[in-house]
C-alpha cells in the first residue's frame, strides 16, 4: 500500500515537472519564468532540510485539525440523527457554511485569534470538517432497516446500538471519507499559513512567491505530496485494521 501510494505520487509529480520543463525548453523561457532542472536540483539541496521541518510543522497541525474534525463531525452527526428536524438544520447549516470561501473568512479568524497555532488549527478543521460532517450525517441518518427492525421489535434498540449498526454497515464508506478529508486538512493548513500565519510550509511558499522563486515552490510541492501520501497511507492502514477488527 505504502509503495503504491508513493509510486503514484511520484508519477504525477514527475509528469507535472516534465510538462513544465517541456514548456520551458519549447518556448525558450528564462529561469525566471520556469527554473532549469539544475536550478531545481541545487535549490532542493539548499532548502530540503528546512522545508522538511516546515512540512512536518504543517502536517502536525493538519493531523490535529483532522482529528478534531473527526470527533466534532461524529459528535454532531450523532446529535443530528436524533430527530429529522435537527439533522436537517445541521445539514443546511453545514452546506451554507461550506459555501463561504475560506480565504474571505480567514482574515477575520486571524484578527480574532492572531496568527499563531489556533488560527491554523481552526482553518484546517473548518475546511475538512464540513465535508466530513455531511458524510457522517448521511450515514447516521440512514436506517439499516433489516437489522434495526429486529432490535426495535425486541425492544433492545438503544441509540448507541443504532449508531454502531449504521457505522458497521457503512464502515468502508466512512474510512474512505476520513482518508479523503485528510487531504482537505492539509490544504486547509497550507491555505491558513499562506494567508496569515508565520510558520509552516504555506508561509514558506508565500515567501518564495514574493521572491518569484518557482524552484523553491517545486521543492515544497514535492515534500507536501510525499508527506500527504504517507499520511493517507497511515489512515488507510488504520481503516483497514478497524474493518478487520469489526468484521471479526
Amino acid at each position: 500500500m505504502l509503495h503504491r501510494r508513493i509510486y503514484q505520487f511520484l508519477i504525477v509529480y514527475a509528469t507535472g515537472i516534465c510538462i513544465l520543463f517541456l514548456i520551458k525548453f519549447a518556448l525558450n523561457l528564462s529561469d525566471y519564468v520556469i527554473p532549469s532542472p539544475k536550478e531545481v536540483w541545487i535549490t532542493a539541496g539548499q532548502v530540503f532540510i528546512r522545508y522538511l521541518v516546515n512540512v512536518m510543522d504543517t502536517l502536525a497541525v493538519a493531523v490535529i485539525g483532522h482529528i478534531l474534525s473527526i470527533f466534532m463531525a461524529t459528535l454532531v452527526g450523532i446529535i443530528g440523527r436524533l430527530t429529522s428536524g435537527v439533522g436537517s438544520l445541521i445539514k443546511i447549516a453545514a452546506f451554507n457554511i461550506q459555501a463561504y470561501p475560506i480565504v474571505a473568512v480567514a482574515p477575520i479568524i486571524f484578527i480574532l485569534l492572531g496568527d499563531g497555532l489556533a488560527s491554523r488549527l481552526l482553518i484546517a478543521s473548518m475546511i475538512c470538517y464540513f465535508p466530513l460532517l455531511l458524510s457522517v450525517l448521511g450515514v447516521l441518518t440512514e436506517p439499516v432497516s433489516d437489522i434495526e427492525h429486529f432490535y426495535r421489535m425486541t425492544g433492545r434498540l438503544t441509540w448507541q446500538l443504532e449508531v454502531k449498526i449504521r457505522v458497521f454497515e457503512n464502515i468502508t464508506k466512512l474510512t474512505t471519507v476520513v482518508s479523503g478529508s485528510a487531504t482537505l486538512a492539509m490544504v486547509g493548513t497550507i491555505v491558513a499559513e499562506f494567508i496569515a500565519a508565520d510558520a509552516g510550509i504555506g508561509y514558506t511558499i508565500r515567501i518564495a512567491l514574493y521572491q518569484s522563486d518557482l524552484a523553491k515552490i517545486l521543492v515544497a510541492l514535492f515534500l507536501i505530496g510525499i508527506w500527504t501520501s504517507l499520511y493517507l497511507v497511515c489512515l488507510e492502514w488504520i481503516g483497514h485494521l478497524i474493518q478487520k477488527k469489526w468484521q471479526r
Binding site: 523561457l29 528564462s30 525566471y32 519564468v33 527554473p35 521572491q211 518569484s212
Partner: peptide
C-alpha cells in the same frame, strides 16, 4: 515580467528588485 516572456503582455510595470532578479535568471 513573466507575462512578457510568455507573450501574454507586451509592456509591463515591475519593481527594480523584480527586474534585477529576472535579469539574473536570464530574462
Amino acid at each position: 515580467i513573466k507575462e512578457l516572456e510568455l507573450g501574454h503582455a507586451h509592456f509591463g510595470v515591475a519593481s527594480a528588485d523584480q527586474v534585477i532578479r529576472a535579469v539574473s535568471k536570464g530574462a
